[in-house]
Amino acid sequence: MAEKLTIGKALNLGLRRALEADPKVLIMGEDVGKLGGVFRITDGLQKDFGEERVIDTPLAESGIIGTAVGLAIRGYRPVCEIQFDGFVYPAYDQIVSQVAKMHYRSQGRVKMPMVIRIPFGGGIGAVEHHSESPEAYFAHTAGLKVVSCATPEDAYVMIQQAVASDDPIVFLEPKRRYYEKGDVEVDADLAGAYPLHASRVARPGTDVTVLAYGPMVRTALDAANAASADGRELEVIDLRTLSPLDLDPVFESVRRTGRCVVVHEAPSNVGLGAELAARITEQCFYSLEAPVLRVTGYDTPYPAARLEEEFLPDLDRVLDAVDRTFGW
């Protein structure tokens, strides 16, 4: 049965299903209990599953992830909430040096079936540290997988798939899109669901391939609608999985369109766009009519809220890049 849910509510329901499906699943983080998290993603879960499974932790991110490592060794499946992107860094050492390497270090004897949920990205008018896009740090780290959802349907399914996976997964939630609504098949069987580590064409097109993930998928789709009015059909691909990347659909698309624009909020320097451009150039060199262009945040710290509209990629900047791929 399809229900209209927001991304936030879909995540909430997905977490509820995950808690029901496996008694080893735990939720831990700051304010995730009574408050239900500052974005209410865990709303009502402590009430229904108890304080033993939905745990308000002390205010220490390294502690959240470090103890989750121990709980995972003990056989639990911790789902850790980091309150905002900019507060994951106290846990960075635990994530990069422990979570990511445990399986390799133990030659497969220890798994880290952990999900690290991070509301990420800007556009909410917040103060410093509340609008960052740290995906490249994690995608650069072997041993971690990184995904991002962009729709309520994906939010609902992907969070359950991530919890069920034995890989440690950084799960990036597009916080400014939490309140966007869409249809969710709430009764669908996970077994038949679209795979977690697969990209997907969000809108077919013929003229330019636009790659996006998380909050920028909506932006890319808006740009595609605007371009269509001007007679250009953009094919928007929602990457969904940032590490590992699933690029076959991307290569197939770029070979058809000959043009590609990558959009992300994170700065460009050594970002995901750079990796995408390199891989596309390697695989689609003879099909390309123009270099792969990037529309990204600038290589500055995230600015004060009254400047974020200028900082963030928007419809106009995507269309500008699309134009430039034709000007080559």
Binding site: E30, D31, G33, L35, D56, T57, P58, L59
Partner: peptide
Amino acid sequence: YAISEPIEKQ
């Protein structure tokens, strides 16, 4: 309090 968490949580 730390947001919603009472001191006993720390």
